[in-house]
Design a protein around this nucleic acid. Structure first.
Lengths: 333, 333
DNA sequence: TTGTATGCGTTATCAT
DNA sequence: ATGATAACGCATACAA
């Protein structure tokens, strides 16, 4: 790779002149700028990013720590993060915690050595269960901003981007009750252990209570054969006329099991799940979803973090990205 | 962040002594090492990664360029890459081309300024369709190793990690013919435009020809309503007794549409698709898949690239990660 | 065993 | 308008 020094030698001028010429300084004559730029073009000179980083003490890089990239929600958030970061001239270094506290902690520590200007993260399931937070506080204490999204830790003060978990499920449940006139609504979940899962369940319960209906919850986070559990539950509780799933898997499974039991969807049984992008493609009838705007979450997160990076006085905020109820055939009549 | 200089001043010794002590040099006395390490621990000293990179001219970072991270195959490959890279003490910078040639090109250029030691990439659909390759050749020419996986460009000489596309589909088709005694096997696809899609189709065709059967291919890459197309095709061709899908979507759709048409799976109709990790969870009956070992692909890719980075004399190789036919209820009797 | 000096590639300050 | 020099934080060759 060509360096300033090499360009300078080839042109018989000093390094600093070359540097200034390339940065279009007014101190440099047009003729010199032309000569320098032509040569730079010819040898395909690119300023060494590492050297610039050392000099400016800014990496223009964001550390992104995700629990699991095979979860389509996080994949889509990553898409939003990458797009927005690139547009803002930032790189992203990606680490996956695999829902493990130890891995999350290690990643955070490793990147806290000047590799990144700030972090965007959703905490691991393990971290939430163990109620750990020191590792994140440590990063913040060493002046590296951390932004948490989706799964957040309340006691930590930092920028946050969250989904309206409570409200969206409350409204979806209300929709089933008031518009669809359903009376036996089952909630199925494999995320009941997460902060977001707890909020979603609360939203469901509030709507159910207000309508003086009976709350019914099927928890599947630690179940081996989810298909079987759902199948059996539906078989034993034939009165169920609606299902709300609070994750991106169990709603589709519910559709499949209900069909297997000969239930007619949506006439006999309305189903609403959570989803992103192409989730509905994989279900038949197409599943209605509470659509989390995952891409937008990533987008908003990057913008907010960069805002903080550019402003010492920045005030910590919590932004809410509203979800959208998308009705498909599984509820539409 | 604490620096060597600060530690040195606090201890009244020289910077180089501190540096050597932290690197456990034999030149330094145990007593000094202890003093240094204790202070470093106390002030939470971490060597500045950027400075190390500038010094050693190695970033210990791999640039990863993926066409789409919301595709579960690439998400799982990324998982394998991240895990292996972390274990080998490498970071990864992730860029998404979104199947666009321009974005891919830009990412490659931007990171070719010393930001990474090498690249791992799968080329964008757009790049394959337009048959572009200069941008990749440019990176290789400037001495940054590039490893291509899954979707590769034949004319470029570099390390490659590929799947046995031809063989796996050939064998799956053969399985349907010989073991399942199927005679009207339909191939459905939404990847017929890609290098991998073409190979998979060839594998199907070879098996079909050898058995003197009739080749039937339903191409869906540019179709709007995939459900409808599949539904109509199956309705109009009631003789079909097996389906092989060469992507991770259309197989599940085929199951759903076949059920809708009252076909009994697998007795009446065997279905095999492509899949990764939890694909089968979303289908009922659980879909049989040609399981691409996506995690392993990522793992092998990182190891091979690092091998090259550590060895000037490295010979370019093409490694094949074999797929595995995983039978579930949709073919089992 | 410890310390001094140099350089990685860049930018910025201060001469000339 | 151009050039010399220092500095970012670290590692290392060479002195002492």
């Amino acid at each position: 790779m060509a360096t300033l020094k090499e360009l300078a030698k080839l042109l018989n001028i000093s390094v600093s002149t070359v540097s200034k010429a390339l940065n279009d300084s007014h101190e440099i004559s047009e003729i010199t700028k032309r000569r320098v730029n032509e040569l730079a073009e010819k040898v395909n000179y690119k300023p060494n990013r590492i050297a610039q980083q050392l000099k400016t003490n800014k990496t223009k890089t964001i550390g992104v720590i995700l629990p699991k990239v095979t979860n389509p929600f996080f994949a889509e958030v990553l898409h939003g993060i990458e797009t927005t970061a690139t547009n803002s001239d930032y790189d992203i270094i990606v680490c996956l915690s695999n829902e493990s506290f130890e891995k999350e902690q290690r990643s955070l520590e490793l990147l806290s050595n000047g590799s990144v200007d700030g972090f965007i993260m959703a905490v691991a399931r393990d971290t939430q269960v163990k109620e750990q937070s020191e590792h994140i506080k440590a990063a913040i204490a060493s002046k590296i901003p951390v932004l948490m999204f989706d799964r957040v830790i309340n006691e930590i003060i930092c920028n946050k981007v969250i989904v309206d978990d409570f409200k969206s499920v409350y409204e979806a449940t209300e929709f089933l009750i008031k518009k669809e006139r359903r009376k036996n609504i089952l909630l199925v979940s494999n995320v009941e252990e997460l902060s977001v899962g707890k909020l979603r369940i609360k939203g469901y319960q509030k709507a159910i209570e207000e309508a003086k209906l009976q709350s019914q919850i099927l928890k599947l986070a630690n179940v081996d054969d989810v298909d079987e559990s759902v199948y059996n539950y539906l078989k034993d509780n034939t009165g169920i006329d609606a299902i709300i799933s609070i994750d991106h898997i169990t709603g589709i499974i519910a559709i499949n099991m209900a069909k297997k039991l000969g239930r007619s969807i949506p006439d006999d049984l309305s189903i609403i799940g959570f989803g992103y992008e192409h989730t509905h493609l994989l279900a038949s009838p197409k599943i209605s979803i509470i659509h989390q705007k995952a891409f937008e979450i990533g987008e908003v997160a990057v913008k907010l973090l960069i805002e903080q990076l550019n402003d010492e006085e920045h005030q910590q905020k919590t932004l809410i990205v509203p979800s959208e109820l998308k009705l498909w055939e599984s509820t539409k009549n």
